[in-house]
Nucleic acid binder design. Structure first.
Ligand SMILES: [Mg+2]
Length: 618
DNA sequence: TAGTTTACTGTGAGG
DNA sequence: TCCTCACAGTAA
């Protein structure tokens, strides 16, 4: 039904029906007539309305106890209602339209409030759009209270390596019966009968595929992970995406100019010492200058090569080794640092800016390990370290000024609010200690005198008193631990530490000797993966690794490293998500806390907290 | 032909 | 050594 044709009594009845529904299957409709179920990229055109299939059948197979045999596709229940809710109004001043608008959000509000599951492909986009359209009528805490199901996330839990690009792909892969998606692209008229029916058919398919996936999740022991972690996260991310972070626009413009000037200077210097003009940003051209013209690599033992083409690399580690041979590498190193800062953190951020604010897009199904990822901007990858650059003061004459630029300070909290971060301490290493039961490592974590795990580790490993552990020892211990655990070879570790491969191999050997149980853990993990074809994290998250039994050595050993890495990184992701859900929920249920979650940086949560609530929130 | 799009590659920031 | 995203150059 179209709610515009309903009378008062019918509207009242509809709201009552909604209360008693078993599920809502829904999609947004866009201006161009497409929906979230079309394979073409959405979000290019604005939202026009929402279509909801209200499922009312009483013999509905309840989710946890679902068995796929009672599900028949053609039995679209007659009690089911398909409703269209128009969310955009051309002329709001007409009283009749005002009434429609009010009723529309009453329906949507009811759907969110009544805890009946809302099934939606890309549910995060749906919830975010509701918050954006009804920002004044619906609060973020109300959205956080709703119950949503997203089959895309279910599919990703079953196999995190394939991300399911569209609804069509989802149907092809997971729908028991081979039906194709009905094309719904009629860009004329509000909703013509044909497209209306096709949408109904597709929503019915969406419902059924969600049921099938729910069953699969239960069979694979992923149901609890899905319900307690991933589903609540959908709402959290939707709410996060509606919160805008203020960035210092003037500062951004100014630093872009300063960095641009410095780049010009460095470019000049580079051309001068190279004796020719070339593009400093081109690794190909730089390689020609450094290695074909100047032949610097011949004066240096064992230089790193590129992955695919096996050419001599121009990466930071190589340039560091070449520093004493020629002035060019040092100039390039600084150029790269300044260029990265300008292109990614200053100009890149400006591109993401809308009216002085930014808001990242979060991807819940983009990683193979269960982590989140962010883009536009990638707020998880903003540089921590400030850089110092010398700025020539042309106006005042010969004076030089040193300015420091730190990308993170470009983000500013709202007036009266403060950024507050909470993070885990060495979560991956703790998980490793737990999973391996390595006694020496466990002891270090349990000892109250351990203030810094890597310092203690360096002390214990090298047998030197903890007071004598230097910063370099700590850094070395840190690198060795993570490198060895995830299976780095001696060459890679040597590159990483700046030592010889021989020394690196001795480090690996001595580490394995001292912490035998860690080595046993990696062996056991690989063995389990060989037997089952997949590895499992603490919360039961899975990663199938088809190459674990491959003939090809390179592919097989890669799968082995991925297996070990997944168990640790994936388990860490589980715990970080648990913390995220728990802390977010505690803010939602609090009647007075107004703190907003800004970002998740894997093991760190960043909030914006009202100044007067910092104590209570902490 | 000139200009745009796409995929791949190398590099470097985060964890 | 694993998992990401952004940017720039290059060739198709
Ligand atoms: Mg930390």
């Amino acid at each position: 039904c179209d709610i515009r044709s309903l009378g008062y009594e019918e509207k009242r009845k509809l709201l009552a029906t909604i209360e008693k529904a078993v599920a809502f299957v829904t999609t947004m409709i866009f201006q161009d007539g497409s929906s979230q179920l079309n394979s073409e990229q959405v979000l290019t055109s604005s939202v026009k309305g929402v279509v909801v299939l209200v499922k009312n059948q009483t013999d509905y197979p309840c989710l946890p106890g679902y068995s796929s045999t009672d599900c028949t596709w053609d039995a679209a229940n007659e009690d089911d209602k398909l409703i269209y809710l128009k969310t955009e109004w051309s002329s709001l001043w007409e009283q009749e339209q005002q009434a429609h608008k009010k009723f529309t959000w009453q329906v949507l509000f009811q759907m969110l409030r009544c805890k009946v599951p809302i099934i939606c492909f890309n549910a995060k986009d749906f919830l975010r759009t509701l918050l954006q359209v009804y920002g004044n009528e619906i609060s973020w805490k109300q959205v956080a209270d709703s119950v949503v199901l997203d089959p895309r996330i279910a599919a990703w839990l079953i196999n995190p390596s394939d991300t399911v690009p569209s609804f069509e792909c989802l149907i092809q892969k997971y729908f028991e019966k081979p039906f194709s998606v009905e094309t719904v692209n009629t860009d004329t008229g509000p909703l013509r009968n044909t497209s209306y029916q096709n949408l109904g058919v597709n929503l019915e398919k969406l419902y059924n595929v969600m049921m099938d996936l729910a069953h699969d999740l239960q069979v694979q022991g992923l149901w609890k992970l899905f319900c307690t972690l991933e589903l609540p996260l959908i709402k959290i991310l939707a709410v996060m995406e509606t919160h805008k972070i203020h960035v210092n626009k003037q500062e951004l413009k100014k630093t872009s100019e300063i960095l641009g000037l410095r780049l010009k200077e460095l470019e000049q210097e580079a051309h001068q010492v190279a004796g020719e003009r070339f593009l400093l940003t081109s690794s190909h051209q730089l390689r020609e200058v450094l290695f074909e013209k100047l032949k610097l690599h011949t004066l240096c033992e064992k230089v790193h090569r590129t992955e695919i083409q096996q050419l001599v690399s121009t990466s930071e580690v190589v340039l560091n080794k070449l520093q004493d041979l020629h002035p060019l590498p040092k100039i390039i190193l600084e150029y790269r640092q300044v260029h990265k800062m300008k292109s990614t953190y200053v100009d890149g951020l400006r591109m993401c800016m809308r009216k002085g604010f930014i808001s990242s897009t979060w991807n819940q199904t983009g990683t193979a390990t269960g982590r989140l990822s962010a883009k536009h901007p990638n707020i998880q990858g903003i540089s921590k370290h400030p850089i110092r650059i010398t700025k020539k003061q042309y106006i005042k004459g010969k004076e030089e000024e040193i300015v420091t630029i730190s990308p993170r300070t470009l983000f500013v909290s709202k007036k009266g609010y403060t950024f507050l971060a909470a993070d885990f301490s060495h979560i991956e290493l703790r998980i490793l200690a737990d999973l391996s039961s390595e006694p020496e490592l466990l002891k270090l974590f349990q000892e109250p005198e351990t203030t810094d795990i890597f310092s203690s580790l360096a002390s214990q490993w090298k047998g030197i008193p903890s007071e004598q552990v230097k910063h370099a020892d700590r850094e070395q211990a840190k690198r060795i631990v993570y490198s060895v655990v995830y299976g780095a070879g001696k060459e890679r570790l040597a590159d990483c530490l700046g030592t010889t491969p021989l020394q690196a191999s001795q480090f690996i050997e001595s580490f394995m000797q001292k912490y035998k149980k860690i080595n046993e853990f990696t062996k056991k993990t690989i063995e389990q993966c060989r037997n089952k074809g997949y590895v499992v994290s603490i919360m039961g998250r899975k990663r199938p690794l088809a190459n674990i039994n491959a003939q090809d050595y390179k592919l097989r050993t890669q799968a082995e490293r991925q297996a070990v890495n997944f168990v640790v990184q994936g388990s860490a992701a589980d715990l970080c998500k648990m913390a995220m859900v728990e802390i977010f929920t505690s803010v939602v249920v609090s009647p007075n806390l107004t703190a907003r979650l800004i970002a998740q940086l894997h093991d760190e949560l960043l909030f914006e907290v009202e100044d007067s609530q910092i104590q209570e929130f902490s």
